[in-house]
Design a protein around this nucleic acid. Structure first.
Lengths: 214, 214
DNA sequence: ATTGCAATTATGCAAGCGTATAATACGGAA
DNA sequence: TTCCGTATTATACGCTTGCATAATTGCAAT
C-alpha cells in the first residue's frame, strides 16, 4: 500500500560520476545552461537528485566536472583524428582544419553546448583554467602542424602568430557556421577555411578539400 | 505610520523602455544571463518590477528588445567609426579591423554580454533573425571595404568568400582576446588581425597598425 | 542467514523566479 | 481647483530551483 520505493542497484562511484556528467552534457547540448537542473540531470542519468550531492559537492561542482570532461573529449577526438591523418604535413594540416568545420564538430548542438558553459568563465577561475588549457592544447597542435608544413628554421614567433591566426579563423568559421548553417552553401565554410588557413600560412590547401557530399 | 509609498515621476513610454533596455544590457554585461531578473532590471532602471510588464509583454519580450538594441548599437558604432575613417581603401579596411580588436569592442564585458544572449538564438526565431541581420550587416560592410581595396572587376564570389573569411578571423580573435586577455601580448591580437586579414585579401595592412599604447 | 555500512531514495524547506492583480498618486485637461 | 485616466507601485501567488536531512535498501562481509 505504502509508497513504492524505487528499486536501485549500487554502481561504483566512478560509473555514477560519469553518468551524471554525461547526462549534464546531453542536456546542455539540447537545452543550454538552463536545462541543467539537478532534477533533470538526475532523471537523465537514471537516478534521483540526492545522488548528485552525494558524489559532487554542489551542482556547480558537477558543472565544472562536466565542462572539464567536455574539453577533454574535444582534445581526445582531435588527437584520434590526427592519429589517422595522412603523413604529409600539408595534408595533415588540411584534415585538422576540415574536421573542425564539419559535423559533428561544426554543429548547432555543439555550439549550444559550448555556449552553455561560456558565461561561467568570467567569474570562475577554475573554469577559466580549463578553458585556457583546451585553447592552448588546440593551438599547440595547430602550431606543430604548421611548423611541419613550413620550411625548417621558420622563427618561433612567426609560427606562434600564424597558429593564433589560423585558430581564430577556424573558431570564427565554426561559430558562424554553427549559428547560421543555412546562411552558407554546402562546403562553403570548408572551402573558405582551407583557403584562408592556406593564405595565412602560405600554402595551397585546396587540393586537400575532401570530396563533397550533397 | 502606514507603508510609505514610493514617490515617482511619470516618464514617457519611450524613456522607460529605453531605461529598461539599458538596465538589462548593463546587468548582462556584468553578470551574464542569470543577472537578468525582473527585480534586478527594475532596480537598475530605477523603477519597480511591475513596470516591466506594463511596457513589455513579458520578460522574454524585454530580453529580445535588449538584444536588438545591442545589435543596433554595434552597427551604429561601426558606422560612426567608418564615417571618420581615412579615405584610402586599405587604410579604411585596417581601421575597421583595428577597431574590432581593441577595447571597448574587444573586452571581457562585451563577451559576457554577447554570451548572455547567445544561447537564446537556438530556439527563438526572432532572435535568430536579429543575429543574422547583424552578422550580415557587418559582413557586407567588410565586403565593401575589401572590394574598394582590391582591383575593380574582382569577381563577386571571391569578394564574398574573403569577407566571410575576414569576418571569421576577426570574430575568432575577438573571442579569444576577450576570453583570455592575459594570454596575449599588448597589440599582439591587433597585429595578427591585420596580418591575417591582409594575407586573406592579398594586401599589406601592417603599415596601418595604429601606434601602440603600453 | 545475519549484520552493518553506505549508496540511494524520499521528503521537505527556504529563496528566488516570472507573472497577475489591486491599490495608489502623478499630472494634464477642464 | 477639481477631476480623471493611466503610469506606477505594492502585494501576493504558484512554480521551480538548489540543498539539507531522514528513511530505506542493496550488498559485501561474516
Amino acid at each position: 500500500m505504502t509508497g513504492e520505493r524505487r528499486k536501485f542497484r549500487r554502481e561504483g562511484e566512478e560509473a555514477r560520476r560519469e553518468a551524471l556528467i554525461a547526462a549534464s552534457l546531453s542536456l546542455a547540448s539540447k537545452g543550454g545552461a538552463e536545462a541543467l537542473t539537478v532534477r533533470a540531470i538526475a532523471e537523465q542519468a537514471g537516478v534521483t537528485q540526492g545522488l548528485i550531492r552525494h558524489y559532487f559537492h554542489s551542482k556547480e561542482d558537477l558543472t565544472r566536472a562536466a565542462y572539464a570532461a567536455l574539453m577533454d573529449r574535444m582534445i581526445r577526438t582531435s588527437d584520434a583524428l590526427l592519429a589517422e591523418a595522412p603523413a604529409e604535413p600539408a595534408a595533415r594540416l588540411a584534415s585538422f582544419v576540415s574536421a573542425s568545420l564539419r559535423p559533428p564538430v561544426m554543429d548547432t548542438e555543439e555550439l549550444v553546448l559550448w555556449a552553455a558553459f561560456l558565461h561561467r568563465l568570467r567569474a570562475d577561475p577554475e573554469m577559466r583554467t580549463v578553458h585556457e588549457t583546451r585553447y592552448l592544447a588546440f593551438r599547440d597542435r595547430l602550431q606543430a602542424l604548421i611548423a611541419a608544413a613550413l620550411p625548417p628554421g621558420t622563427p618561433q614567433h612567426t609560427l606562434r602568430a600564424r597558429a593564433i591566426a589560423c585558430n581564430a579563423v577556424i573558431d570564427g568559421l565554426w561559430l558562424e557556421g554553427s549559428a547560421l548553417p543555412e546562411a552558407f552553401g554546402p562546403n562553403e565554410i570548408l572551402t573558405i577555411g582551407l583557403t584562408s588557413v592556406g593564405a595565412i600560412v602560405g600554402l595551397d590547401l585546396i587540393p586537400y578539400l575532401p570530396e563533397a557530399a550533397a
